[in-house]
Design a protein around this nucleic acid. Sequence first.
DNA 1: CAATATTGTTAGCCAAGGCTAAACTATTTG
DNA 2: CAAATAGTTTAGCCTTGGCTAACAATATTG
Lengths: 159, 159
Amino acid sequence: MTDSNPNASLTAPSIPGDALPPVEQHAQQYATVRNAHETELIEDYVELIGDLLAHRGEARAADIASRMAVSQATVSKMIRRLNELELVTSKPYRSLFLTEAGQKMAETSRARHDIVLHFLRALGVRDATARIDAEGMEHHVSDETLAIMQRFTEQQQNS
Amino acid sequence: MTDSNPNASLTAPSIPGDALPPVEQHAQQYATVRNAHETELIEDYVELIGDLLAHRGEARAADIASRMAVSQATVSKMIRRLNELELVTSKPYRSLFLTEAGQKMAETSRARHDIVLHFLRALGVRDATARIDAEGMEHHVSDETLAIMQRFTEQQQNS
DNA sequence: CAATATTGTTAGCCAAGGCTAAACTATTTG
DNA sequence: CAAATAGTTTAGCCTTGGCTAACAATATTG
């Protein structure tokens, strides 16, 4: 380091005990997040389609578009991808349905989502906030943490 | 709905009391997540640069690349963006530094990250898992939830 | 101090996920 | 049942965030 350091105030670690993780571990953290991002949107679509089917009996592109606050063109393009991934079946101008793989994904996503949402409420987070946070968090919570969240929620309820 | 429904098993809601949220609320949930995604990567870079400066005294593109598990070309491109956003200053072949805005962002991100990480550990999540989950979750935790997490962690420590 | 190794940059490619505008299909209704 | 409205698809554009390969600058070392 030949430069002077204008960020001198940052030179001392804010939390002295917390060193940087070893490179490999650090790298894996970021890689895991990047990976989650790739499947995230897909899961959100599939989960929403499952919910629409469950609650409404049908899942139309227009409903998805308004619930996701996205244009219908975007939904249409995405449905093509879901089709290629064999997660949904669609006939033009007809309701979507989930394939078996799609149903499995929808159930898994829904379950994760519910665990996170109920956990946040059990923690004391207001409903509207909990819903927003759960939507963002659900794809980044490991199975280990998920299990702990579920236990926590149950204990909270029995008291 | 003129079609027969091959997803009949999904017709009954898994959790009967949990109806679909009203369209506007639902839409806002997704919009919030999409929005978080836009700033997420930027924050990760800035946070990492801050950490490198704090712990190493300098932040080189090569370190960022290996810690993020990403090519140097990607980092180089990203640094150009951070420059345009006036979050970092950089001279070619020299360490990066944070602007004031960059430092502020780094501190905020680091603080959020630490709160989430400590919370997960307080919950009983193993360290390695907590680190991975925290990295993904930090950008999706509202201030309200963050405050609750912090309180929880403190209570846990005083017992 | 020249050769080599490391580090950084640039150019050009790709896929994903947005958008608008235009065209087409289906449904509803006067 | 024709016209209007609503829903869907397609085409074509843009930005972001990856990548590799080729080149340029700096540092290290024999």
